[in-house]
């Protein structure tokens, strides 16, 4: 399948956690070469699968398929321990010379989609899959959280004007009314902070669940290309999945659009999937 070879060349940047311990310039490679083979593609796919199942941010794998070129010696250096970093959208490579114990240089990120051999497959979203038991369970959970969020929001927006006025007043008249610890007014102030924290936690949980819903029900993950035909006006939307959010009873998928030519455009597009109607 791969008669023509796919050699990729990358720039290399210095990588350091402690600024004081900067590394010697001669130990920094100039270029990084690797061949994008089917095996590498499979490794990346497996890593990404694990990434979404365990909801991890990044997976680091030992690799030996990278060549580091040094300009000073005009050759490849061997015996460099190399690591491949895979996250939802990108891969990058880092490495360390034998004397060092931590990676001290790294390449730029490459988008996995840009590496592909062939045209990237576009996944379509089939709403019928929302009726499976798994989907229903997840949807119920999201709905429950969504209800909780709405309740909290109601309280929050009722308290908020009072508390913000109170705070303003407190600042202006620092010596006069000054929020005493344990006073009623202070209690209100603290309650508002608490509600806000709960709301943020709920939102994060909902976003996580919606990602899981998209992954487990539709098999979609970040970086995938999607197409969706809206049920209301039959308009076709194509985009690259970058974020998803839940608002009320809809999941909102956001990402840059895919143009007719089959490349990424600049405009942001949205796909709204309603799951409230289902019952």
């Amino acid at each position: 399948m791969t008669n023509q070879n796919n050699i990729i060349c990358l720039g290399v940047n210095e990588l350091y956690q402690v600024k004081k311990a900067r590394y010697l310039p001669t130990t920094l490679p100039t270029l990084c070469f690797f061949e994008f083979t089917q095996t590498l593609q499979d490794t990346i796919d497996n890593a990404r699968k694990l990434l979404f199942e365990q909801s991890l941010h990044e997976i680091t794998i030992h690799t030996s398929n990278v060549n580091w070129y040094f300009n000073l010696t005009n050759r490849y250096h061997h015996n460099i321990r190399s690591l491949m970093h895979v996250d939802a959208m990108n891969i990058s490579f880092s490495g360390m010379l034998r004397a060092y114990k931590q990676p001290h240089f790294s390449t730029a990120n490459i988008s996995i989609n840009q590496l592909q051999f062939n045209r990237i497959p576009i996944n379509s979203i089939n709403l019928d899959q929302l009726t499976t038991p798994l989907a229903k369970g997840l949807i119920n959970k999201i709905k429950q959280l969504s209800r909780q969020l709405t309740e909290k929001e109601e309280v929050y927006y009722n308290i908020e004007p009072i508390v913000s006025n109170l705070r303003e007043l407190d600042e202006k008249t620092a010596f006069d009314i000054h929020l005493e610890r344990c006073s009623q007014l202070d209690l209100l102030n603290r309650q508002e902070n608490q509600i806000y924290a709960t709301m943020t936690a709920l939102e994060t949980e909902m976003n996580y669940l919606s990602e899981q819903l998209l992954y487990q029900v539709f098999g979609l993950s970040k970086g995938d290309w999607l197409s969706y035909v809206s049920q209301n006006d039959a308009a076709l939307t194509q985009l690259q999945f970058e974020q998803c959010r839940v608002y009320g009873d809809t999941i909102n998928i956001i990402g840059p659009s895919i143009t007719k030519a089959g490349v990424l455009g600049k405009r942001e597009q949205y796909i709204n999937i309603e799951f409230g109607a289902e019952k």
């Binding site: 050699i7 060349c9 990358l10 720039g11 270029l31 690797f34 060549n67 990120n109 490459i110």
Partner: peptide
């Protein structure tokens, strides 16, 4: 190669053998 890499993230080289 380094000059080209200033503007792009990576280069695909077709006529190379590693």
């Amino acid at each position: 190669l380094l000059k080209k890499l200033e503007n792009v993230q990576f280069l695909k080289l077709d006529n190379m053998d590693v």
